[in-house]
């Protein structure tokens, strides 16, 4: 296994935390539409982007995950009225802090993806994967 990985180059381990109303359904729609995208991201479902405590970003990175993505409904479309508005502020502030402390910005990502944006979801996963591949493995806490 290890050998194979070496040969094929670096395969980042990515986590996507998705809100169940928009982004998770967008990701499902990408499946229904049989779009193809990179298999590196493992998805975790939560009710709302507001549930995504920014500390998850830190915990992900200190757990040696190479990149972590938050994704929720577009501003204004939140199933819980304004959850994504609060989530946005928390995310942005914490991302700035982590970057200031030396984390690569590519590892800490957020997106808005609606239930109808299957194509966008596939693009997000692909581009996050490519960016993190370029950035390299997260060895800071090993």
């Amino acid at each position: 296994m290890e050998e194979k990985k070496e040969k094929n180059g670096f395969e980042p381990r990515l986590v996507g935390i998705l809100c169940r109303w928009c982004s998770y359904q967008g990701a499902d729609l990408a499946g229904t539409s049989r779009l193809k995208y990179e298999p590196n991201m493992t998805v975790l479902r939560v009710p709302c982007s507001a549930r995504m405590s920014p500390l998850f970003l830190m915990k992900g990175l200190t757990s040696d995950i190479d990149g972590i993505l938050f994704s929720g409904c577009h501003p204004g479309d939140c199933h819980y009225i304004s959850g994504n508005m609060n989530a946005r502020r928390r995310f942005v502030i914490f991302k700035k802090l982590l970057e200031f402390a030396g984390m690569e910005p590519e590892r800490i990502q957020m997106s808005w993806c609606s239930a109808s944006e299957d194509k966008k979801w596939a693009d997000i996963v692909d581009s996050v994967t490519i960016e993190v591949k370029k950035t390299g493995p997260n060895n800071k806490f090993k």
């Binding site: 501003p75 946005r88 995310f91 942005v92 991302k95 990502q109 957020m110 997106s111 808005w112 993806c113 997000i124 581009s127």
Partner: peptide, 8 residues
Amino acid sequence: KIDDKMIR
């Protein structure tokens, strides 16, 4: 305004 740079 935050979105353009920070959020996809």
